[in-house]
């Protein structure tokens, strides 16, 4: 498979701090790759190297088979978390400006966004601004889309519509790299790359990353009494609806810690988020060692 974006053993240091540590990453045509990681995991540093804004300390970044440059930048559509629009320009002026940078041949603004006419972007609702940012990023038919938390603050229907746009771009052959904090969104990606402490600690589909792991779920008559009992036993407890989940614990130990509280204790499949925590904690522990 010819790769649109490729990182081979990429490392980036800031002084004595290693932000990205020997990372390998590929994004191919038509692929949606999700990049997951806590703050400080190295996601932003990696994205900045892929955009050509930051050089590597070691290893190679290539875009479309060559080192990042102004020319490769033209083939990328980027939607930053802050959307990157000019508040003091209208939607159409924002797009014109982008066309001036990326060259002619841009797709005109979709009709539903045209209706905002000469209103300034800064005065439009955030949901509309987000659609304009997407239209702008896609207007020059990029081969590679990079999206940073693309649907933050969007309602579920609006989120489904944005993901439709992303999937259409991928169906048309573009590669997509998405960073997200939200596991719901991760399920929209064909492949996930989990980063922790600067390294790639897991890669694959959500099911492959979860890998059949289980956690203990507690359904108690009084969740608060169960929460207090498990807390005082030193277990890590999380609230889930009107029940509790105790990741990393042994069911017998949970049962014992609940004493004579009426509760059903059973093992259930772990969520992607629970598996993500496990991976992040393991990485932090091996870093400390």
């Amino acid at each position: 498979m010819s790769s649109l974006a490729s990182c081979v053993e990429v490392t980036r240091r800031f002084g004595t701090f290693t932000a990205v540590n020997r990372v390998n990453l590929e994004v191919g045509p038509g692929e949606i790759v999700g990049l997951l990681g806590a703050n400080g995991a190295g996601k932003t540093t990696l994205i900045r190297m892929l955009l050509g804004l930051l050089s590597t300390s070691e290893g190679d970044v290539t875009l479309f088979g060559e080192p990042p440059s102004r020319q490769t930048r033209r083939r990328i559509g980027y939607v930053p978390q802050g959307l990157g629009l000019y508040d003091d320009l209208s939607p159409a002026e924002n797009l014109e400006f982008s066309e001036a940078v990326f060259g002619p041949g841009a797709t005109p603004l979709p009709d539903e966004l045209r209706s905002y006419g000469r209103e300034l972007v800064g005065s439009l609702p955030l949901g509309v601004q987000r659609r304009i940012a997407f239209a702008q990023a896609l207007s020059h038919h990029p081969d590679l889309l990079m999206l940073d938390e693309p649907t933050s603050g969007v309602d579920p229907l609006g989120r489904a519509r944005l993901w439709e746009t992303i999937a259409e771009a991928a169906d048309g052959g573009a590669g997509v790299l998405v960073t997200t904090h939200y596991m719901e969104e991760a399920h929209e990606c064909g492949r996930l790359v989990v980063m922790a402490a600067g390294r790639v600690v897991a890669e694959g589909t959500a099911a492959e990353i979860i890998g059949g792991r289980q956690v203990v779920a507690v359904e108690a008559a009084s969740w608060s009494a169960a929460f207090n009992a498990l807390e005082s036993a030193g277990l890590q407890v999380a609230l889930a609806g009107r029940g509790l989940r105790v990741p990393g614990a042994d069911p017998a130990e949970v049962r014992r810690s609940l004493g004579d509280l009426p509760a059903v204790v059973r093992e259930v499949p772990a969520t992607l988020e629970e598996r993500f925590f496990e991976l992040t904690e393991q990485a932090a522990a091996s870093e400390a060692a």
Binding site: G37, A38, H181, L239, E273, F277
Partner: peptide, 13 residues
Amino acid sequence: TGVDPVSRSGLWW
């Protein structure tokens, strides 16, 4: 909103 998963779990606690 905008909080990473590790901080989010602290908030949920």
